[in-house]
Amino acid sequence: MTNPILSIRDLTVEIPTRHGILRPVDGVSYDIGRGEILGVVGESGAGKSMAGNAVIGLLSPPARIAQGEIHVNGTRIDQLKGEAMRRLRGKEIGMVFQDPLTSLNPLLRIGDQLTETILAHLDISRAEAEQRAIRALDEVGIPGARERINSYPHEFSGGMRQRVVIALALCAEPSLIIAEEPTTALDVSVQAQIIALLKQLCHQRGTAVMLITHDMGVIAEAADRVAVMYAGKLVELGPVRDVLTTPRHPYTHGLMGSTPLASRGKDRLHQIPGAMPRLDALPSGCAFHPRCPYVQDKCKADPGPTLADGGGEAACFFPLSQDAKVA
């Protein structure tokens, strides 16, 4: 990809513990281009949030980046510390969290929270910052932004609060937004509104979005490309249509089969036996092999190929053929 906004190369996050070193993220590489939404999916424990936190520098110790590089707009950021990282956070990278109530300060009016963020990153006057805050609220579809700027977070509904959080992430005009489960706490109809808003803002401004979620439906709706993670590793990466309709990795295939679908009717759901392994008890070879229906001897010994970027390939010795449609 030419000049990606975010470029992650061979990222490894380690947590040293008494029982050895755990790797919640293990050798992950991907790019996100301008105006692109990359969906990062995986079940709990797959390492998708850890990868997001590593990018924005919010890994809580003792977790640390042990290896690899992270570039944003061509600048390497994984070694930045303290003040330098703080300046980047919010300015270059915006973040939208799952629960809109806990990510806003309940004691500050939302206008103050917005202007504070703007003033911290942009060199403009307070009055200008206020104008900008109103415009940001207007842009995320909050009616009567000029008056609502004086409201407290509790005076908004869940969906409106998530809009405020998005406005907050956008107000310093970052080039990358990391949205972590932005719609999980919301109702279906509000979820549709928030997805539409994210997509529209992303396409209009050319902001790159890393959309971390476990919901395949949200991915299908919003993402341009999708990265599937399993036990810290990237197992499949490609355009959303290809990955969801003709998955190459057996895990993605199983995941798609176990999602209840309108067209699938009342038959038994396909199920992947077992559960995601714990990080301190990873199986040898390919981490998916104990659950994989196509496992062979090679998979048990060798961790398998890693994904080169730009793929559309799967990190598997025996990827499924492209005709193997999801049942």
Partner: peptide, 9 residues
């Protein structure tokens, strides 16, 4: 409004 797996974008 429910997200659909088979209608991309």
């Amino acid at each position: 409004a429910a997200p659909k797996l088979d209608e991309f974008g």
